[in-house]
Simulated assay, not measured.
Amino acid sequence: MDFYKTTEADSNYNNLEQMSVQELLVNINNEDKTVPLAIEKALPQIEQLIQQVVLKLKAGGRLFYIGAGTSGRLGIVDASECPPTFGVSPDLVIGLIAGGDQAIRSAVEFAEDSTAQGWKDLQNHQISNKDVVVGIAASGTTPYVISALQNCNENQIVTGCITCNQNSPLSLAAQFPIEVVVGPEFVTGSSRMKAGTAQKLVLNMISTATMIQLGKVKGNKMVDMQLSNDKLVDRGTKMIMNELKISYEEAQELLNTHKNVRAAINHYNHDAKHL
């Protein structure tokens, strides 16, 4: 099957160093506008993967993201935001990056080239066929990620991927591939730009749609969020106030007692029924 890396193709723009700041911004912005349209074409693929993730998580499994460089960091960002946003265990969605935690801040040379380490990193988390693993790589050629997915397939573990090239080795390795073809980058080969934006948007979709399907949102509110700062305590208080039509002070007292928006609402409604 032919494989052409559009992520490495020559930029549609040249002589960037001769552009003014305004010209640079307008051109980058014009390129960025194309990303949601590329994602729209991949919605059926995204839906298929999310259905699998929901099935596995409802049955007690976990979701793993695995990537290198920018792709790995984006997976870690999405995973790390699930506990505070949806009140789930930090062990439910796990992000892994080639080179380990050190690679979150600085590049670890050649870490992405290992064909053994990805599977080892998954095994450190006692990966099993209850889980689902999503490989993230803009190019779709990262050995660390591809080999991890191939090992998963051999062990009957459901695999998906997010890549920005069509018919890549990663797409062929994944059972449920997502291909968001965003075209050449503004700076040739700089896949932290449009490709990174596309991956972030798809990750938002995967985690948000999954958590809603798991019942972690009520109406349109994050009723299970962790109350980890004053802003979130205030937001939670207002959610309770609006939901139960009570004063801010009453809502605050309920939240202080139950430490969770959903629990506060449920207890209030339960008590009201039994009056």
Rank of each mutant, 00 (worst) to 15 (best):
L170G: 07
S139P: 14
N153C: 03
E179V: 01
I162W: 04
Q175L: 15
G140D: 10
G196T: 01
T141V: 10
F186M: 08
P177M: 14
S191P: 01
L170Q: 12
S128L: 01
L170V: 08
Q175F: 09
N129Y: 00
N153Q: 08
K130C: 02
F176Q: 13
A137E: 09
S191H: 03
I162G: 05
D131N: 13
S168H: 04
L170F: 10
L172H: 14
I136T: 08
L203W: 05
T163P: 08
K130T: 00
K130R: 14
L170E: 11
N153W: 00
C161M: 14
C164Y: 08
V134F: 02
A174K: 02
K200I: 00
A198T: 07
A148I: 08
G160E: 07
G196Q: 01
E185P: 07
I136K: 09
V145N: 06
G160I: 12
L149H: 11
V182L: 08
V132Y: 14
T159N: 12
S191D: 12
N155I: 01
T141E: 11
N165K: 15
A148C: 12
T197S: 09
G160A: 09
A137I: 09
V202S: 10
E179L: 04
L170H: 09
V145E: 04
P184L: 09
G160P: 10
G140K: 02
N165T: 14
V180M: 06
L172Q: 15
S171F: 07
C152D: 02
T188H: 05
T188N: 06
P184I: 08
F186A: 00
I162D: 03
E179F: 04
S147N: 14
Q166E: 11
Y144E: 06
E154F: 02
